[in-house]
C-alpha cells in the first residue's frame, strides 16, 4: 500500500512548552486510523499539523507526496484536497446550508454555481438532510450540523479526510448518526485519520489505532493488538477507564 500521510519526527512547542515530541507515523491509502489519548495529549494538535492549521518546528509531514512544512508549498491547494471535520462543526453561520456546501467549490476549485450546488445537494441527500438545504446552520441540531460539515468536506472531492473529535461536542443521542456517516465513508475506501474517544467506532471501523500521551505517540498498532493487549501501562489505564461505561 502506498502512503497518503507520512509524519516523520514531528516536534512542536508553544513557547517553552513542548506539545509534540518526535511523533512518527503514517496513514496508507484507504486506511482508517483512529488517534486517541487523554485530553491534552497532543492528538488534536497533531491532526491540525497535517493540513498546516498548526505550524510545527521540527520534522516533516508529507501528504500525497507534498511536504506540508515546506514554505514553498501552496497550502490552500493542499488543504483543498484534504477534507477536515471539526469538533464544533464550524459551518459558516451567515450562509445557508446550500451556500456552505457550494462556497469553497466555487471560490477555491472554480466550479460553476450550478455544478457546485448540484454536487452539494447530492451529498446532502447522502447524509439524509436534503430537506434542510435552504436553512441556516443555527436552525439545525448539532448532529445534523456535523453531517452537513462532513458533506461540505466531501464536496471538495478530498483524497483523504481528517476528523478532529467530530462527536465530542454532541449530545449522546446524536453521536450515532454522525458515526454512521463516517462508517459508511470508511467502507467506501476513504482514507481517514480520526481523533476520537469513540472506542466502539475504532473497534468496528479502524485498521490501526494510535495512542498518544503527553505529546508522544505511545502505541501505534493494529486495532486488535491495541484492544487485545496494549503494551504500555498508560494505554491500559486509558482503556480501562473509557471502556467501563
Amino acid at each position: 500500500m502506498s502512503e497518503m500521510i507520512s509524519i516523520q519526527n514531528v516536534s512542536k512547542w508553544y513557547g517553552e512548552f513542548q506539545v509534540l515530541t518526535d511523533c512518527t507515523t503514517s496513514v496508507a491509502k484507504g486506511e482508517v486510523v483512529v488517534v486517541c489519548g487523554p485530553s491534552g495529549s497532543g492528538k488534536s494538535t497533531l491532526i491540525k499539523c497535517v493540513n498546516a492549521l498548526e505550524p510545527f518546528q521540527k520534522g516533516e509531514i508529507i501528504v500525497n507526496g507534498t511536504s506540508v512544512g515546506n514554505p514553498k508549498t501552496n497550502l490552500p491547494k493542499l488543504r483543498s484536497q484534504v477534507g477536515m471535520v471539526f469538533q464544533h462543526f464550524e459551518l459558516f453561520p451567515h450562509l445557508t446550508i446550500t451556500e456552505n456546501l457550494a462556497i469553497a467549490q466555487i471560490k477555491v476549485l472554480g466550479r460553476g454555481r450550478d455544478e457546485a450546488e448540484a454536487k452539494g445537494l447530492a451529498l446532502l441527500e447522502r447524509v439524509g438532510l436534503k430537506a434542510h438545504a435552504h436553512k441556516h446552520p443555527g436552525q439545525l441540531s448539532g448532529g445534523q450540523q456535523q453531517r452537513v460539515a462532513i458533506a461540505r468536506a466531501l464536496a471538495m472531492d478530498p483524497i483523504c479526510m481528517l476528523f478532529d473529535e467530530p462527536t465530542s461536542a454532541l449530545d449522546p443521542e446524536m453521536i450515532n448518526e454522525v458515526l454512521d456517516v463516517m462508517t459508511e465513508l470508511a467502507q467506501e475506501g476513504m482514507t481517514m485519520m480520526c481523533v476520537t474517544h469513540e472506542m466502539g467506532f475504532a473497534r468496528r471501523v479502524a485498521d490501526r489505532v494510535i495512542f498518544m500521551d503527553r505529546g508522544h505517540i505511545v502505541e501505534d498498532c493494529h486495532k486488535d493488538a491495541f484492544f487485545g493487549s496494549p503494551r504500555s501501562e498508560r494505554a491500559q489505564q486509558f482503556l480501562s477507564k473509557i471502556l467501563q461505561h
Partner: peptide, 19 residues
C-alpha cells in the same frame, strides 16, 4: 475555528476574510 474551517477548505487569507 471559523478561520480554521475556511483554511481547511483551501481558502486563502483573503478569501477567508472576505467570504
Amino acid at each position: 475555528g471559523q478561520v480554521n474551517a475556511a483554511y481547511a477548505l483551501g481558502m486563502t487569507y483573503g478569501q477567508a476574510m472576505r467570504l
